[in-house]
Amino acid sequence: MDKKIEQLGTLTGKVLLFGGVYSNLQALEKLKQIAESIGIPPENCIGTGDIVGYCAQPEETVQLLKIWGAKSIVGNVEIQLREGAEDCGCDFREGSRCDGFSQLWYPFAQSKLSKNSLHYLETLPDHFQFNYAGKKVTVVHGAFENVSQFVYKSTPWEYKEPTFKATKSNVIIAGHCGLPFQHKKDDKLWLNPGVIGMPANDGSPQVWYCILDDSLGNFNHKHHSLDYNHQLTSQLMRNGLLPEEYARTIITGIWDNTEILPPIESGLQGFGISF
């Protein structure tokens, strides 16, 4: 299938980047409040996909994003939902704990989404491209050729390079892996803003996003942590239909397992985030 790449032209001013809302309405509400409080317009708020996921309010989350007017590409979850697929397409190992959990939260999300929300997901592109502070930027979910590819900071550059080459970009903004990081080599930057729907396995219930700033004429970026009503999010997830383990992670900031993580990232569990 041909990729749908939406060209955003040249963006100026602050740009808010976020990923993995995962049906976490409370986190999205707080992020919207932050964007409005610092004057970032909706068209400068960009998501890396997986709007729908592990938490309890998929319909409300999609509708809030639509009303807000922030931009998002599709993640693997949106692709699967709009195609009526039977699994989330997350590329979890078959029989793993994450695979087992997905057999709970994915059909739950399917059962809650309205036709209106599914139609909205159908309008989302595979990628964004824009120019910012003299850099060509492409937004992907996992990687350009594979929407569900897990790319981490420790992932060798040789696995990141094809996305730069395919898109002819200086900066790649990516999601999917659930962890915020930046990896720079020469004049190229792979930037993951993190996700707002789940903690980053760092032992804190806070979640992560990123802001680009061109006020000094350069391409500047900074990660930020986000406090929100995680107690309510966790409470809503304890509905007997979603994994209890994920509801617990919302509180503890510790993932139930690290089976998708490379050794370096796995070993950093509970040690906080540093850049």
Rank of each mutant, 00 (worst) to 15 (best):
I264F: 11
Q206G: 10
T138M: 03
E259T: 11
N229T: 02
S114L: 15
R82F: 12
N170I: 01
T155I: 00
I40L: 14
L242M: 09
F275H: 13
A109K: 00
L8D: 11
C55M: 09
L179T: 02
N201C: 09
E60P: 05
L191S: 07
Y228A: 00
L241Y: 15
L216F: 11
M237E: 07
F181E: 00
E78T: 08
K30Q: 15
D87I: 10
L241T: 07
T48S: 12
Q33N: 13
D227Y: 10
E83M: 10
V137L: 02
E29N: 15
S225Y: 11
P263G: 06
M237L: 02
L17Q: 12
G142S: 07
F101L: 03
S225K: 14
V74E: 07
Y246H: 11
D50W: 04
S114G: 10
L64P: 11
S23H: 02
T233S: 10
H127T: 05
Q235K: 14
H183W: 00
G267V: 01
I264P: 00
Q57S: 07
Y22A: 06
P107Q: 07
G253C: 02
Y106N: 03
W190L: 12
C98I: 04
E29T: 15
D91N: 15
I73G: 00
L113R: 09
S102D: 03
K188W: 01
I51R: 10
N229C: 04
S154H: 02
F18Q: 05
I254L: 15
H183I: 00
P125F: 07
L113P: 12
P107A: 05
G49W: 13
Q103A: 05
I172Y: 11
I46R: 15
E158T: 11
S114R: 09
V207C: 01
G175K: 10
I40R: 13
A56M: 06
E265V: 04
H176I: 02
K4S: 12
Q7K: 10
G197R: 14
H221K: 05
A56N: 06
Q57R: 15
V139A: 09
S148A: 15
T48G: 13
V15L: 04
R248D: 13
I250S: 15
E122T: 08
L81A: 06
D256H: 13
K184P: 00
V52G: 12
I51Y: 04
T233F: 10
G197S: 11
Q231W: 09
K188N: 09
M237V: 10
I211Y: 04
V151H: 01
K153S: 00
S111V: 05
S23Y: 01
P156E: 06
